[in-house]
Amino acid sequence: MPQKKRSKDLNFLEKIYLPEIFNGLMLTLKNMFRPNVTMQYPEQKFIPPASYRGRPVLVKENDDTERCVACGLCSRVCPALAIEVQPDETALEKERFPKLFEINMLRCIFCGFCEEVCPEEAIVMSKDYELVYTNREDAIYGKDKLLVPVEELSDRLEFLRNFK
């Protein structure tokens, strides 16, 4: 029985390799003259697009209060159990605010579930990817590090409104 011809079967020119090798060489040669994509990182910083999921941050309103109402959904949905919220009562109209809001950045996996589940758009993924700490305690971010003014997050909030 004659063997069935497969699309993989090579023709004569392909079988003698040389033209194909030449094609391959030309491809790499062409690439040598293309512009580089490497960034000189510490000097040159990558500014991510709005869809980027950097470290999660809390939205700080213009009146310096947090948007968060400490509902605890982010904490519940977090697959890595990175978030701890301790609610308390406030005299503001929203009644409830996070007395304590801690994200353990060693546990965080940047999945963005917290952002997705948040009913208030209070926790969003920022563009910040530079996370450095030298011990485990420093990796636990409290409200002081998490609260970011709302203007700085306008990109992401707009992205969420359009695509979430």
């Binding site: 509902c71 605890g72 519940r76 609610p87 009562e89 009644e95």
Partner: peptide, 9 residues
């Protein structure tokens, strides 16, 4: 108990 914690925690 108001605003102390979430019941599921």
């Amino acid at each position: 108990f108001r605003f102390q914690t979430r019941v599921w925690e």
